[in-house]
Design a protein around this nucleic acid. Structure first.
Length: 199
DNA sequence: AACGACTACAACCGCTCTGCC
DNA sequence: GGGCAGAGCGGTTGTAGTCGT
């Protein structure tokens, strides 16, 4: 069913693509009231949208300093490495890519990088995947997650929790300048032997 | 030109987490 | 401690655009 064309209900809310007019109204209200209490923002903006939808629109498209499109090689490499480390924790990954949103990275992963990895695996396994994917939809991603889990669970559960704590600690960057790229350069230098480097 | 298949991505949904009363 | 509302997250869907036939 096309968005906006759904069966009329008593309390119908707008769905589907945002119009420039809606964007403008939302930005104006957020400028005045701040980016919180989304239900109230939606009401004040006079938008027939739910708060959730307003929040998503702001975070992914209207927020200042958002980069759109053109993910660089460096960023792509970074996403691959971080995904290997973290799995599908898109918000954490996005937090390490200034101007990028979790939604954008997730989409980029699903449409570009998961394919690259799949192709690479096909090359490595001579075109035959030993383990059939349990999930048709998330097969590729799951395969990589298994690798991550296997690496970090090599000892025992205590060690595993340590690893997880360290990862969380590593990704606690609340005190850092989000636009600082120095750590990226350091991170990229850490693992020159990364198997994804040649992708 | 027409049509179907494929791709990319914006947006929604359902669930969990967190803070407040 | 329990219930509630708001916020956040990851998974999934819908559709416009592109490409191949």
């Amino acid at each position: 069913m096309a968005p906006g064309a759904e069966v009329t209900t008593k309390k119908e809310v707008n769905r589907g693509a945002w119009t420039p007019e809606e964007d403008r109204k939302l930005a104006e209200v957020i400028e005045v009231h701040g980016a919180k209490r989304w239900k109230i923002i939606a009401a004040k903006a006079g938008l027939n949208r739910c708060g959730k939808s307003c929040r998503l629109r702001w975070l992914n498209y209207l927020r200042p300093n958002i980069k759109r499109g053109n993910i660089s090689d460096q960023e792509e490499d970074l996403i691959l490495r971080l995904h290997k480390l973290l799995g599908n924790r898109w918000s954490l990954i996005a937090g390490r890519l200034p101007g990028r949103t979790d939604n954008e990275i997730k989409n980029y992963w699903n449409s570009h990088l998961s394919k690259k990895i799949k192709q690479k695996e096909i090359k490595q396994h001579g075109g035959s995947m030993r383990e059939g994917s349990k999930s048709q939809k998330t097969g590729q991603v799951e395969q990589v997650n298994v690798e991550v889990r296997e690496e970090s669970t090599s000892n025992n559960e205590v060690e595993d929790s340590k690893v997880r704590d360290n990862v969380d600690e590593f990704f606690d960057f609340s005190n850092e300048d989000p636009l600082n790229f120095d750590w990226v350069c350091q991170f990229l230098q850490l693992d020159d032997s990364s198997k994804f480097h040649s992708l």
